[in-house]
Nucleic acid binder design. Structure first.
Lengths: 167, 167
DNA sequence: CGACAATTGTTGTCGTCAACAACAATCTTT
DNA sequence: AAAGATTGTTGTTGACGACAACAATTGTCG
């Protein structure tokens, strides 16, 4: 799909007229050498792909991966404080404020002032939020099938197993 | 290490005196439910961990993952244009401009005006850049050993194999 | 009990990063 | 030669992580 480099790109010091030198730089043929074999690079590229597919698949309902994770955790654990959600998801509490502002504005989440600890808020899904989350989960499952189609069913399971420690 | 939630956090509508309900919300014990089983979530958490370790391991030389990937590709393919590097790494050419500005300022990279195509620049490592990259590669290898220690040698290899398609 | 420390939610700043849009200079195509 | 495409550049926007500071509230400890 990306048809960018369809001719030689660099001005090689060697003779450029020959066909041998040109083929080397043909699109997608640039050597990565040391980069291959780096787990971080492969994981980064894969993470970009998987997030883009998630965003695309859930594009119709305008839900991003982080929003989805927040809704899921609140749905599974009603009454959590913002700190609890932030810690669980590895999000900063400062950032969660804006996420919840948005989700509350869209009537998916309620902040209820806790009476046990008047500093904190108990987070709950609204009725609207529950039905919406159910729909999001169906779309997320569809996204997950895209992942399966991309790397294979057994590879996906193996990968989940390898990375289970990062929950 | 993070001892944040050491008591119940939410004001559960159910009776709160019992021990059963309280244990459920104990630190790090919050259910993720549907989130587990999502490849994207596990990959995101892992990617964050791996990048932080990379940044920490290469912290002494002040090289971030993206900078490392740029240097590696240029080192392996001298004379590439900015577009070629950007396409190969999945970076936007607009973003690569700043990356190269920084690397050129630190005398690791040279932009040489191409005579074949006067719009483009041929990218090369300086002599200083070559010796520096050799050092970076040693540190990157050390980082890779951290990954092995984290997920296991055979798991790392399997993971690289699974994600090989994302180069 | 009362001073002091810690926690929670909030606001703000800073830097990284992806996605676009616009532009001048320079090819390529026709 | 004119029209279109490409390259490098600058700029904007928005998501995101890392910090710092603050008021309100709670916990601790002398």
């Amino acid at each position: 799909m990306d048809r960018a480099i369809h001719r030689e790109t660099g001005s090689l010091p060697r003779k450029r007229a020959g066909n041998g030198a040109a083929r080397r730089n043909d699109a997608d043929q640039i050597g990565l050498d040391a980069l291959v074999g780096h787990a971080g690079y492969a994981v980064r590229r894969f993470q970009i792909w998987i997030f883009q597919d998630f965003i695309k698949t859930l594009g119709g309902v305008d839900i991003r991966p982080t929003q989805y994770s927040v809704l899921t955790v609140i749905g599974a654990n009603p009454g959590l404080s913002q700190m609890a959600v932030a810690n669980r998801l590895g999000i900063e509490r400062a950032r969660l404020v804006h996420l919840l502002d948005s989700l509350e504005q869209r009537k998916y989440v309620k902040r209820i002032k806790s009476k046990a600890d008047r500093r904190s808020h108990a987070l709950h899904l609204t009725a609207q939020g529950e039905t919406a989350l159910a729909k999001f989960k169906r779309l997320a499952a569809e996204h997950e099938r895209h992942v399966e189609a991309k790397i294979g069913k057994e590879n996906r399971e193996r990968l989940l197993q390898i990375l289970a420690g990062f929950t």
